[in-house]
């Protein structure tokens, strides 16, 4: 017996209510019906189901990512304006060995890394071990590796695995 994905149903219902712009009982009922049917119908198409173990850690991750996005926005703005002092900015690729295995955790990491200005997810080797990142301001590859491993990977493993 598979578990019912309650979070997905609630999220889709909220999206329905926001789109229609009203919270009347009729719309609520219609939203619940549509999202339940969609979720149960599409469950057969997706064989993998995520297990969110610690929702509070997910909240911590969210705030951490928000702070990082703000910081790297400032950093990229300085590079675009050429305000880096005399330092030459070098970009390049970094290889990072990962211990994450859960596909949903990997997808979350890809979204986080790519939506942070300054780093773009380039490749994940087919045996799921080495991640290739492109970094705009590459000073020390080891520093980037440490940031990914300690700041994100640790927390993601806590949440998903």
């Amino acid at each position: 017996m598979k578990r019912t994905p309650w979070l997905l149903i609630i999220g889709l219902t909220l999206m329905w209510l926001l789109l229609t712009g009203s919270a009347s009982p009729g719309q609520l009922l219609l939203g619940v019906a549509v999202s339940t049917l969609m979720t149960l119908g599409f469950r057969a198409v997706r064989p993998l189901h995520p297990h969110l173990r610690r929702p509070l850690s997910a909240l911590r991750l969210f705030f951490r990512v928000a702070v990082d996005i703000l910081k790297s926005n400032v950093a990229v703005a300085r590079i675009v304006l050429g305000l880096t002092g005399k330092r030459e900015v070098h970009s390049g690729f970094v290889d990072i060995p990962l211990e994450l295995r859960d596909p949903h955790a990997l997808a979350t990491l890809a979204t986080i890394v790519t939506s942070t200005p300054g780093t773009v997810w380039a490749d994940l080797s087919s045996d799921d071990h080495v991640l290739t990142l492109h970094v705009l301001d590459l000073r020390d590859p080891q520093v980037t590796r440490d940031i990914i491993k300690h700041r994100y990977e640790h927390l993601l493993r806590e949440i998903f695995e």
């Binding site: 996005i69 703000l70 926005n73 990229v76 703005a77 590079i79 675009v80 304006l81 970009s91 790519t114 939506s115 942070t116 200005p117 300054g118 780093t119 773009v120 492109h134 705009l136």
Partner: peptide
């Protein structure tokens, strides 16, 4: 504006990937 200026100014393609995500996020 800075994101799009970066898209225009950067010399290499892989560098150009980065500035537009400023506009997309903040």
């Amino acid at each position: 504006l800075l994101g799009s200026v970066g898209l225009l100014r950067m010399k290499r393609f892989y560098d150009r990937m980065h500035p537009p995500s400023m506009g997309n996020t903040l």
